[in-house]
Amino acid sequence: MSELEQLEALVTQVRRDILRQVHKVNSGHPGGSLGCTEFLVALFKEIMDRKDEFTMDGKDEDIFFLSNGHISPVLYSVLARTGYFPVEELNTFRLLNSRLQGHPTTHDGLPGVRIASGSLGQGISVAIGAATAKKLNNDAHLVYVLCGDGELQEGQNWEAIMYAAGNKVDNLIVSIDLNGQQIDGSTDTVLPMGNIKSKFEAFGWDVLDIESGNDLNAIVDGMKKAKLRTGNGKPVCVLLHTVMGNGVDFMMHTHAWHGKAPSDEQLEIALTQNPETLGDY
């Protein structure tokens, strides 16, 4: 397999993991998870400079924060399949006594998670803190954070966005999952946010778009460009144009699967569309 084929195989397997995790416990958030599958696979496999061994401090490596913690199924799958914990543990998603809580937490010592998230709007602030600590420690590595687009409705984000530009936090790449959907409907109908790109630019950020946010090549190219734009006095924002529910035809382009699990029948159809590649857990 070529490198791209290997990544594509991993993406398909992660999609299966997401669907099977959510189906088993009849809860969780498949839509946003599927929409960010290619991004997280590309980020962890191709973009970030990571160490094999997880340490909370994350010194001398790139670190990642998931601000929209509800897409935990994709994070857990990618973490497991990049070696942070055994893939069999995906079986415990949302079960009693599991490290794989409904929303990610440090509370139970799950490798790969450095902050609890779920209550929205806090990730950029945390990432700025971690990026600032890296500068104090003379650690030239980067801090990545992924946020939902609906999440930007939380005011804390704009405090953070203002701070990062004003204080030249330029070792930070914030990616926004621009799928245009949130629980109650499209972002335009729930609370229109206007032009997100102009807003970030007006706050002093360097913004770039990844128009095909579900295309591995486009993501890798876009994120490599984003990396090149760090260290220039501005924080970097990547607008990742994705399709919620990507890879499962009946889940795509709708908010309906934001926080809903598929039935047995729906799971079967969804898995048929994503045949096993690297082995189910």
Partner: peptide, 9 residues
């Protein structure tokens, strides 16, 4: 939030 992040370093 920043304070929480700084502890990570």
């Amino acid at each position: 939030g920043m304070a929480a992040g700084m502890t990570i370093g």
